[in-house]
Design a protein around this nucleic acid. Structure first.
Lengths: 122, 122
DNA sequence: TCCATATTTCAATAATCCTTTAATCATTGA
DNA sequence: TCAATGATTAAAGGATTATTGAAATATGGA
């Protein structure tokens, strides 16, 4: 991931509604959610959610596809992983112990299977 | 790291000059750099760099200390690691393979010692 | 104390971003 | 084709953020 894309990704994640959308889509899995459903869950107007979805899509963090009348958005797991890597490598560049610190942390998927509930495609 | 702080961190990193400052400070190591030196390296005015440093400090990503006439800024490795974790856990929440993907990547500190050049304090 | 250095703060302008409302576009089914 | 549904786009506003230059603050040394 180049710096340009990283900047866009950080900008995309720096807004409350957008961060909430990303978290929701990540949990929703590869099938994604229709724009209307997202708007409903976030409690914001359709046009406002559309604005933020476009912003997120522009950054590459989410993908969209039309499905009949709906437009379905889904998290781009690759882009998210790339962003984590970008951040890690920047940290790591000066401080190798950060990687260890992160890997040592007990995220939900460290060793257990608490995330097995969601189908994984890519 | 709570959402509030993550938002502030993403906002801090979403600006070109600030991202460059963070990368420079991370590479500079725990000793940090004086504000004047940072301004010089970035090629921006002292007052402008001061504005961005304050923004970064407000987000917790960097720390400051006075040292004689200079004010020295240094990367907050803990905060950076926390941000990586926040992002990983958000990804991980829906897609356990991202963690694997990130851990598989050959960042500069994967297995070699290319980063040993910098003293590590924390 | 006085001056020079290092940096911040302030004020003003410019630029960008967010929200809202109204209008438009695309798809489906009667 | 017409109406209904789901969503985007456009325009306008208000709010936040970035940049610049001038003035103010803090430190150290003559």
């Amino acid at each position: 991931m180049d710096e340009r894309q990283a900047l866009a990704s950080f900008a995309a994640l720096s807004q409350e509604t957008r961060l909430a959308i990303v978290r929701t889509l990540v949990v929703a899995g590869p099938d994604g959610l229709a724009a209307g459903l997202i708007a409903e869950r976030m409690g914001v107007s359709p046009s406002n959610v559309s604005f933020h979805l476009k912003e997120l899509e522009r950054s590459g963090l989410i993908a969209m596809r039309r499905e009949s009348r709906s437009i379905v958005y889904s998290a781009s797991y690759d882009a998210l992983a790339d962003l984590v890597k970008f951040l890690m490598e920047d940290c790591c560049a000066g401080h190798p112990t950060i990687r260890e610190s992160v890997e040592r942390s007990d995220g939900c998927c460290g060793t257990d299977a608490a995330c097995g509930e969601i189908d994984v495609v890519a």
